[in-house]
Design a protein around this nucleic acid. Structure first.
Lengths: 243, 243
DNA sequence: CGCCAGATTGAGATCCATCAAGCGTAGTGG
DNA sequence: CCACTACGCTTGATGGATCTCAATCTGGCG
């Protein structure tokens, strides 16, 4: 976490040369701390910047008229927040922090520099947008055609898989700082049912949760159960680094 | 439909100059006809090209292990198919035609020409990707937090709104060539329930469907009912056309 | 005329939501 | 140190939305 986390993230897609690293770093302003449970931006705000996540977890959501809420993204270190608002003047969703977090602002207007100076970085940004789409797609499948237990297992596996990209840790346990009501709003369930679903997964021996700590005794068994295949997160076109 | 439909689509986002038009057109191969009900590509195929839709409707889907299916995109003339596979070597979904259709292949590898030759077109492609994300986002909200009647109304309004971008027609009726089982797979419902839902909407006087023909007596009332706001489809940053 | 796919309708079952109560832990103030 | 509170989680009972299975209907088409 010492250097720009975005470099680590981008570097996991393609070999970056110093000129690319300089350009990327020049876009990031100095990091800004956010407390847990605070809102970074509101739906409808003017959208002038992206954010890159240095540390901590955040999530985006939409508040519905009937008082319910839909959680749309969950952001972990290395992610870019708000890329999709490149095409919009206003924020499509609100964003709030789940834990204490650090983000770097990154003015939207400077994308033009990327596009005019580096084909590789243009491709990379485009690829990251494409990957975000793949994640949304998979979540659509999750909401549309899976049971509550599968939904919960699948989302957990997705997050575990995404964390493995930039962090390394024991494969079968990790910290997932999402309270049950956030999971509920991400999966289209009620918080009560999320609780029941966790106990069901526990009784099946598939997954254990204690105070935000997740433990998975047998990853393969859980993946089979949830219908999870990680290729939508990990397989990617190698991009060469000419320019 | 005489000229490239993609020009019309791209032109609706920004003022295109002749050089842009030439570059775009040079990417498109000659159109290819597809019969209704045939598969254009399969999940897992090598993904070497995008397609632009000249005419007709298509959809993308994922077949699940348990025999169910999730429909993920619905494509209408002017749309780009497969942009998100820029970052993947293999197709994430299968794509099939709903009606007789014409598509133009567009080799993925040539995106590099776009990135190196035109900042405007790079921005435009990026913006189109962002807009696709916004559509997926909204569909996530739809699946997660709305009732069956709202889901169906919302999807219909989305398609109507998207058609209005490139076509012009009477605002309160249009042809929507999606059989009920496709709607069911798009909304995470059973076909039986889609049928019931249509009759419910009919009884409420909100929406009528007869043989793929949709009629909406009072658009505003339906939008209120469905929680539909079109800003995620229509509002966009104006991009200037330098370079 | 018969057939087939799409659509409708009915009855019963299932999954999940809602409401309500209770539990445990962390924090707060007296 | 001890109420007191607040929040997240759990558990039970009940109801509702939607699914499944099955039968029927309709329109197009060979």
């Amino acid at each position: 976490m010492s250097k720009s986390c975005i470099l680590k993230h981008f570097g996991s897609y393609a070999e970056l040369e110093p000129c690319h690293e300089d350009l990327l770093c020049s876009l990031e302003k100095s990091p800004r701390k956010i407390n847990a449970e605070t809102v970074l931006c509101h739906e409808g705000d003017i959208a002038e910047a992206f954010y890159t996540v240095l540390s901590g977890w955040l999530f985006s959501y939409r508040n519905m008229e009937d008082g319910t809420r839909q959680v749309l993204d969950i952001f972990v270190p290395g992610d870019v927040i708000g890329l999709r608002e490149f095409a919009f003047t206003h924020r499509l969703t609100s964003v709030a922090a789940l834990t204490e977090a650090e983000v770097c602002e990154f003015p939207k207007s400077r994308m033009a520099e990327i596009f005019s100076n580096s084909v590789l970085l243009s491709s990379l940004f485009f690829a990251i947008g494409a990957r975000e789409q793949a994640v949304l797609l998979e979540r659509l499948v999750n909401l549309g055609r899976r049971s509550a237990t599968q939904k919960l297992a699948h989302l957990t596996l997705e997050l575990l898989s995404r964390l493995e990209r930039t962090n390394t840790f024991s494969q079968n346990e990790f910290r997932m700082p999402l309270p049950q009501h956030v999971l509920a709003d991400a999966l289209g369930l009620s918080t009560v049912h999320v609780s029941r679903t966790f106990t069901e997964l526990k009784e099946e021996g598939l997954m254990f949760r204690d105070n935000n700590h997740i433990q998975i005794p047998n990853i393969k068994r859980l993946k089979d159960f949830a219908g999870f295949s990680p290729y939508y997160l990990n397989e990617s076109v190698p991009l060469d680094s000419r320019n």
